[in-house]
Amino acid sequence: MRLDVLYFAWVRERIGLPKEQVETEAATVAGLVAELVAREERYAAAFADITALRVALDQELAEFSAPLDGVREVAFFPPMTGG
């Protein structure tokens, strides 16, 4: 399946791009993260501490254990600081 993967704030800075298309067979967000981490050091650096990250699936907050079935857009970012 092909996913749009988005990165924001320091996750975007560490990985070095705001958005990319990823071809994956991962069943869950955690599986996708493991694939990305295995790719290159910059992904490993960005995902070193997953408890410091949040994920959204199709623009709704989700858990790292969530399935990717039917998902088109995945976004990774640090905890939000609005207001």
Partner: peptide
Amino acid sequence: LKSRAPFW
């Protein structure tokens, strides 16, 4: 909106 709206 401090911790659930996606601003950084």
